[in-house]
Design a protein around this nucleic acid. Sequence first.
DNA 1: TCCTGTGAATTCGTTCACAGCC
DNA 2: GGCTGTGAACGAATTCACAGGA
Lengths: 233, 233
Amino acid sequence: MRDRIPEATVARLPVYLRCLVDMSERGTHRVSSDQLADAAGVNSAKVRKDLSYLGSYGTRGVGYDVEYLIYQVRRELGLEQDWAVAIVGVGNLGHALANYRGFAERGFRIAALLDADGGKVGEELGELTVDHIDDLDRVVKEEQVAIGIIATPAPAAQEVCDRLVAAGVTSILNFAPAHLQVPAGVSLRKVDLSTELQILSFHEQRRAAVDLVRQVAARNREADAGPRPPAGD
Amino acid sequence: MRDRIPEATVARLPVYLRCLVDMSERGTHRVSSDQLADAAGVNSAKVRKDLSYLGSYGTRGVGYDVEYLIYQVRRELGLEQDWAVAIVGVGNLGHALANYRGFAERGFRIAALLDADGGKVGEELGELTVDHIDDLDRVVKEEQVAIGIIATPAPAAQEVCDRLVAAGVTSILNFAPAHLQVPAGVSLRKVDLSTELQILSFHEQRRAAVDLVRQVAARNREADAGPRPPAGD
DNA sequence: TCCTGTGAATTCGTTCACAGCC
DNA sequence: GGCTGTGAACGAATTCACAGGA
């Protein structure tokens, strides 16, 4: 097999793919690393290095063929096939995820919704009916579910995760704010909404602190130099 | 000011914080870097290095005081104050985010919901009423909104982003699958649901490929060695 | 003895800069 | 002349390993 693709590159391929699909839909058939870099919000050296891990699909002096590159990126990401996804936890977030159009558009078929709450079992949501979590094994087998999404409260997440793994699911996307353990051979990714806001808070606060220092400095200058100091940078 | 904290460390502080709060609620008052590392799913050297950026708050031979560490991490992340958040786009995802309890619990007050769709304006959601996006300036000023969440479709995202920035919002969390431009001095973070699934797809596919190679290899061994070869690893 | 705090070593990721091909 | 593909240089993040304080 070809040399392993760095994880950082894998994480950017979906972004490139989206840009390429946009371009293709707008009728663009050729793209340079510079243009793709602009669209994706990275620099062109990164684009070239990332794409070079897939193979030499560009033409020197010309650029990349958009359709062909889409094909190659999709192949590399395993998007030639559709994947069946099960969502566990049909609260607010589970609902939103179940209704999210973007999944189906990109080849991720929501094949099952499950919940531990008997009150939710049987609820209709689009074409799907909510199943009880105890049916997980059966559903995973019947629908060939490869990816599980955990959208439960944090305390339930690890048990749900274990049951998904036991049922044969080998990729898990966790929205519960908890750190989950999975055995080797299972991929786990996490989306943590509060964490994102807390990271923003950190930067927001630092800006506020810097502003404060500036203001004080400005006031000192004012006091030293008398009224109307020139506006600094 | 103290030496800059690496971005990778900032991204982990919220995780540590959650673990510490959990521990505190369970009555644990002291923690070693090993225990915290276990809880957070990282290794202990990382924990120690990360925490050392905040200062020397541990005790050699003993560990860290949970409450004190919580205080320090919260302070560093700017969580001593509450932040007002505006959500733009009240579709499925916007709804789910507006109802998400985790935000309020961690000091992020949803102060406003906005949408461009006149049909949604006036809709009640908990204590809030959906405002029209044209009221953004007023709302940001009245509520002192510091953080904006974009939960619109991709085509609307950049314009919404520009309007948030123009209104004085300096931190933005983007859920729309689009790359946004912001001026320097504005923090932007992105959560891309499809991207996450596509990354899982990559690994899922690779596993399938490896399995296939193994199966073929096993079948070849079988053919060479006759029936019942010993199960390899 | 136990566990933190941190330089040093290492690994991983990004960017530079240019040879090579169109 | 233009743009890719890629070694080499650089920088960031992780991990090692141990000195030093409780």
